[in-house]
Design a protein around this nucleic acid. Structure first.
Length: 782
RNA sequence: GCCCGGGUGGCGAAAUCGGCAGACGCAAAGGACUUAAAAUCCUUUUUCGCGCAAGCGGAGUGCGGGUUCAAGUCCCGCCCCGGGCACCA
């Protein structure tokens, strides 16, 4: 299960776990061995500072919070195994997080560098790219992130970019297309070439990345990002440098969705590698240092942004691609760039080639002459995992003045958080101030050294908790490989779509790293993924600021856990957003009460023992009730096995109960007993408390979810007669009630003579009669 | 701009493979029980026209076309809503 209860449990969690719990209980009743973990995070990062400000010790607070969460989940009746459940704040979990970190450090997958990072002033910590939503922190949706240059620890997720992309092929069957699309988008592979442009009068090059090397003869200038390392050499004048700094500041201050295109000429030129022509080098704020090489060749005739930039700065426009069925644009009159593939023109020996072929040949040419090569660029960036906060796994590194960066020896793990912190409330990790934590001897030379004070992003905890769940008490390894091999990959994962490019990409990465370390064999963690819709109220996502939050505790107090969770399954199919309607819950509540009364009043010994009726000779009412019962079993079993539309499963239970009420007085004791037993078991995945109580009322002692799921009998479920609609020209005119399997000819004859059909056939010519046995008759008449 | 979803009664929704549109629930109205209310039980409820009535007929799944005996469902072209990405070279 995906979402991480962070401090407060909300209806989204209830819905998520209601789906998973129904499924787990169903699978148990079908006799499967099911591990049913709940995803734990680190309990309330947003509330952490608040708790500390109240003077509570963080660990004490966290343990209290965990206990409170467990009570909430127990009240809701989710069948989690608390014995196995992994708490990511346990020393053992810290230890293995740190162990993984050191393994990655050994392999060069963990490294430290200075970079411009996203800083959330509210959290007082940096964020990974994935954790920035619309320019704001993912936890504080209205707090814009700031940019800060800091030295940070990164995990080299980009080393797995190609594999993360390619292996999505294996997930096509089991994962929702939109999640795959989002990941594909996020990884952002683009295939092209890198090409060197020599700086005129220098031995240095500027390397550009392009996906359209076929347009290179149309390159009329080079544009580099204001942060590009060559800027220092190209621009020496102080006042010009100041302008560039201004440009960076101005760009950073603007709304990222509509940044004004700014440009500055460097006064220097580059040599076009294909034509040897001199083209000017510009600095442009729309060129991103973080993507490709941070420099581009501008081809205004064939790129929107280049066109806009060159028009604004009076740079020539040189068309070199014409549409396959059209003419080359004219330099003087061109009004818009032609950005599609076409035929290459005005490009020396490559003129006349198609774009695709030109790309291949020109790349090969560049490679052969040593000024370029094929290149694949990704949008995905390395995962910045340093956090300047108390809560989280300490990064196990030590800074020694003489030895430099020294990993904490494995035998010294885990590095635990100190308990005696004071909260500064300002932008530095609270751990910085704890001398007993920070000051350590160097493990190599013994000199006085400093411990890293950053802690790990808590998404690390969630990247592998499900593996630990298989073997939670292992103290020699993160988990036993054989045990994990029995359970992995996960058959079914359930969670919110909001984790599509966060948790779900991190845990795929982590799995691949663990495979390379030799812990596991599976390249992917999850075979099938189900993303449930959001819980919405009054047309908006539930949130405190809108005041439209429904508290699960209030729901439990008012209607009980069963009604609350069952409503979250009934109001909409689980993959769609759910519009929470408070009055709707009372409908479920009524249903549960009706079911409860029906079973209890019919479970008295006298009722159940009055079974003089022979099981084989049943009344009409008995047969009707049993038919509905078996149809319901078939329906719900099918919903569980194929599509999880629990809203229709629950609707069919309601239909069944309506029928039972209608025929209650006419049904024999034996049938009542069968019906009560079956109904109670059908209820068990959705309403476990009610079902358990009824199950005991019916005289059973085993927990109901350890009983077997009811079998359905197709013979009993079958209707006696088929009701076949008769249409004339596609319009419904009447029904036939006939035996199943009635022959086509007979159906046609009956339909044509049907009294309600006749009037519509009078004075008409019968053209054709469509007969689908057991389904429908359609008479075509003119 | 690109990529995913979605659009069906007063509301949440159902129709699983092209075959009776609106199951189930909410809300509403009426009735039974009750001194009364709540709770419970029963009935009605897509819409328009005709009818005292049982009923009869027409229209109807965002819009416009198309395929088909038959379209909420398939195809083509649009509109609207939600989500994701977005100077990504």
């Amino acid at each position: 299960m995906l979402p991480y209860p962070s401090g407060q449990l909300h209806m989204g969690h209830v819905r998520n776990y209601a789906i998973g719990d129904a499924l787990a209980r169903y699978m148990w009743m079908r006799g499967y061995d099911v591990l049913h973990p709940m995803g734990w995070d680190s309990f309330g990062l947003p509330a952490e500072n608040a708790a500390l400000k109240q003077g509570r010790q963080p660990r004490e607070w966290t343990l209290g919070n965990i206990a409170a969460m467990k009570r909430q989940f127990n009240r809701l009746g989710f069948a989690f195994d608390w014995n196995r459940e992994v708490t990511t704040s346990e020393p053992a979990y810290y230890r293995w997080n740190q162990w993984f970190f050191l393994k990655m450090y050994e392999r060069g997958l963990a490294y430290r560098k200075e970079a411009l990072l996203n800083w959330c002033p509210e959290c007082a910590t940096v964020l990974a790219n994935e954790q920035v939503v619309n320019g704001c922190c993912w936890r504080h949706e209205t707090t814009p992130v700031e940019q800060r240059a800091m030295k940070q620890w990164f995990l080299k997720i980009t080393a797995y970019a190609a594999e993360l992309l390619d292996d999505m092929e294996q997930l096509r069957e089991g994962w929702p297309e939109r999640v795959l699309a989002m990941q594909r988008n996020w990884i952002g592979q683009s295939e092209g070439a890198e090409v060197d442009f020599a700086i005129d009068g220098s031995t240095d090059n500027i390397r550009v990345f392009t996906t359209r090397i076929d347009t290179i003869y149309g390159a009329t200038c080079l544009i580099i990002a204001p942060q590009h390392p060559s800027v220092a050499k190209l621009v020496t004048d102080e006042s010009e440098r100041l302008k560039i700094k201004e440009m960076i500041d101005k760009t950073a201050r603007q709304d990222p969705s509509s940044v004004e295109k700014l440009g500055l000429p460097t006064g220097q030129s580059a040599i076009h590698p294909f034509t040897n022509a001199k083209i000017p080098i510009w600095i442009g704020n729309f060129v991103l240092m973080g993507y490709g090489t941070g420099a581009i060749m501008a081809v205004p005739a064939h790129d929107e942004r280049d066109f806009e930039f060159c028009k604004a700065h009076g740079i020539p426009i040189r068309p070199v691609i014409r549409p396959t069925d059209g003419a080359l644009a004219d330099e003087a009159t061109i009004e818009a760039p032609f950005t599609e593939y076409g035929i290459v023109e005005n490009s020396g020996e490559w003129s006349g080639l198609g774009s695709g072929e030109a790309r291949k040949k020109m790349t090969a040419f560049a490679q052969a002459h040593g000024f370029g090569n094929e290149s694949i660029t990704y949008r995905l960036k390395d995962w910045g995992i340093s956090r300047q906060r108390y809560w989280g796994t300490p990064i196990p590194m030590i800074y020694c003045p003489s030895c430099g960066l020294v990993p904490v020896p494995e035998t010294d793990l885990p590095v635990l958080l100190p308990l005696d912190v004071t909260i500064t409330g300002v932008g530095q990790s609270p751990l910085e101030a704890v001398a007993s934590f920070i000051n350590v001897p160097c493990p190599v030379c013994g000199a006085a050294a400093r411990r890293e004070s950053d802690t790990m992003d808590t998404f690390i905890d969630s990247s592998w908790y499900f593996y630990r769940y298989c073997d939670p008490h292992n103290d020699t390894a993160p988990f036993n490989s054989q045990t994990a091999a029995q359970w992995f990959p996960i058959d079914q994962y359930i969670g919110g779509v909001e984790h599509a490019i966060l948790h779900l990409i991190y845990s795929r990465f982590w799995t691949k790293v663990m495979r390379d370390i030799g812990l596991i064999n599976n390249p992917e963690p999850v075979k099938r993924l189900f993303t449930q819709g959001m819980v919405i109220k009054d047309g908006a996502k539930m949130s405190k600021s809108l005041g439209n939050v429904v508290s699960p505790d209030d729901m439990v107090a008012q209607f009980g856990a069963d009604a609350a969770r069952m409503y979250s399954l009934f109001a909409a199919p689980p993959d769609r957003d759910l519009d929470w309607q408070q009055e709707g819950v009372s409908g479920i509540n009524r249903f549960l009460a009706r079911a409860f009364r029906y079973v209890t009043r019919n479970s008295s010994p006298e009722k159940l023992d009055s079974s003089e009726v022979d099981d084989t000779v049943r009344s009409e009412a008995d047969r009707t009730v049993l038919r509905k019962l078996h149809q319901t079993v078939a329906k719900i079993t099918n919903d569980f096995d194929s599509r999880w539309h629990f809203n229709t499963s629950i609707a069919s239970l309601m239909e069944l109960l309506n029928e039972l009420y209608a025929l209650e007085s006419k049904v024999s004791g034996v049938t009542l007993q069968i019906v009560s037993n079956t109904l109670t078991r059908l209820l068990a995945p959705f309403a476990p408390y009610t079902a358990q109580e009824l199950w005991e009322t019916l005289g059973h002692t085993k927990p109901v979810f350890r009983e077997s799921w009811p079998e359905f009998d197709p013979e009993l479920a079958k209707e006696d007669l088929a009701e076949i609609p008769v249409q004339v020209n596609g319009k419904l005119r009447g029904h036939l009630r006939v035996q199943f399997g009635t022959a086509k000819d007979d159906l046609q004859r009956l339909a044509l003579t049907h009294e309600k059909v006749q009037p519509f056939l009078a004075s008409k010519q019968i053209v054709k009669v469509i007969v689908v046995p057991d389904r429908l008759v359609n008479i075509v008449a003119k």
